[in-house]
Amino acid sequence: MFDLIPFEHRNNDLFRYFDDMERAFFGGNTDIAPCKTDILDEGNRFVLKADLPGFKKEDIHLDIEGDRLTISAEHSEENKTEDQKNNFIRRERRYGSMSRSFDISSIDADHIEAKFENGVLELDLPKKQETVPANHRIEIQ
């Protein structure tokens, strides 16, 4: 199960304090936060569920590079000329991209299945079958 722990920065990182100070000074976050995920162990497979609200299926990309699975998604900004016509008083919805990576060294990457429904990405991650050598006795000569 430890193979599916995401690659991410720890909360007590010194640079996080500088990032938080910058966000406070400039008035908020400029990017989209990584997706929240649940990972279930169902015996012969893992099921990963990631919340990606507001994204379309076409905006989401799943890439495997070596033993790393990366989930990435990008919101594209709407036409700026239309935004100027709407006379926004406050605009809190953000546009940008996010990505999150997972170690899949114990996963059969050729048989991963994905579906996206109601803002939730669900990945079926089958575990690799362990090859156990057959038991036999060796005769001494």
Rank of each mutant, 00 (worst) to 15 (best):
residue 76 S to F: 09
residue 100 R to M: 06
residue 12 N to M: 15
residue 30 T to I: 13
residue 70 T to F: 08
residue 4 L to N: 05
residue 79 N to T: 06
residue 123 L to F: 03
residue 51 D to N: 12
residue 41 D to N: 05
residue 73 A to L: 05
residue 112 I to H: 02
residue 92 E to V: 08
residue 15 F to V: 14
residue 81 T to A: 08
residue 56 K to T: 04
residue 11 N to V: 15
residue 134 A to I: 12
residue 97 S to P: 04
residue 78 E to M: 09
residue 45 R to P: 00
residue 85 K to S: 01
residue 38 D to E: 15
residue 110 D to R: 10
residue 23 R to P: 11
residue 82 E to C: 03
residue 31 D to G: 13
residue 97 S to V: 05
residue 138 I to C: 08
residue 45 R to L: 02
residue 138 I to E: 06
residue 21 M to A: 14
residue 83 D to M: 05
residue 29 N to R: 11
residue 54 G to T: 09
residue 28 G to A: 11
residue 133 P to Q: 02
residue 65 E to N: 07
residue 89 I to A: 01
residue 139 E to H: 03
residue 136 H to K: 07
residue 124 D to F: 02
residue 55 F to E: 01
residue 133 P to R: 01
residue 127 K to V: 04
residue 27 G to E: 10
residue 124 D to R: 04
residue 28 G to M: 14
residue 130 E to N: 13
residue 54 G to A: 10
residue 111 H to S: 15
residue 18 F to Y: 13
residue 40 L to D: 08
residue 49 K to F: 06
residue 48 L to G: 00
residue 41 D to T: 04
residue 37 T to K: 11
residue 12 N to H: 12
residue 18 F to Q: 11
residue 90 R to N: 03
residue 26 F to P: 08
residue 94 R to Y: 04
residue 56 K to M: 04
residue 19 D to S: 14
residue 91 R to H: 00
residue 131 T to I: 10
residue 23 R to M: 12
residue 30 T to V: 15
residue 93 R to P: 04
residue 108 D to Y: 09
residue 25 F to A: 15
residue 138 I to M: 04
residue 101 S to P: 02
residue 71 I to V: 11
residue 100 R to S: 02
residue 68 R to D: 08
residue 66 G to N: 04
residue 54 G to D: 11
residue 15 F to D: 11
residue 47 V to I: 12
residue 53 P to Q: 10
residue 46 F to G: 00
residue 73 A to K: 00
residue 91 R to I: 00
residue 134 A to L: 10
residue 130 E to Y: 13
residue 75 H to D: 08
residue 13 D to E: 07
residue 109 A to D: 06
residue 46 F to W: 01
residue 58 E to N: 07
residue 23 R to N: 12
residue 139 E to V: 06
residue 27 G to R: 09
residue 128 K to I: 07
residue 63 D to H: 09
residue 71 I to E: 01
residue 40 L to A: 11
residue 49 K to V: 05
residue 137 R to Y: 13
residue 65 E to C: 10
residue 55 F to C: 02
residue 65 E to H: 06
residue 88 F to T: 00
residue 56 K to F: 05
residue 101 S to N: 03
residue 131 T to F: 09
residue 117 E to P: 15
residue 24 A to G: 12
residue 122 E to G: 01
residue 40 L to P: 05
residue 119 G to V: 10
residue 50 A to F: 06
residue 53 P to S: 09
residue 119 G to A: 13
residue 66 G to F: 08
residue 138 I to G: 07
residue 58 E to M: 05
residue 110 D to H: 11
residue 2 F to N: 14
residue 20 D to A: 15
residue 133 P to M: 02
residue 22 E to Y: 14
residue 22 E to W: 13
residue 117 E to F: 14
residue 35 C to I: 10
residue 30 T to D: 15
residue 43 G to T: 01
residue 108 D to N: 13
residue 8 E to R: 15
residue 21 M to K: 11
residue 134 A to Y: 04
residue 43 G to I: 02
residue 114 A to E: 03
residue 117 E to G: 14
residue 133 P to S: 03
residue 23 R to E: 13
residue 29 N to P: 10
residue 69 L to C: 05
residue 110 D to W: 13
residue 122 E to D: 05
residue 15 F to Y: 15
residue 3 D to W: 05
residue 136 H to E: 08
residue 43 G to F: 03
residue 89 I to E: 03
residue 30 T to Q: 15
residue 101 S to C: 07
residue 51 D to L: 12
residue 118 N to S: 14
residue 134 A to D: 09
residue 129 Q to I: 02
residue 121 L to D: 00
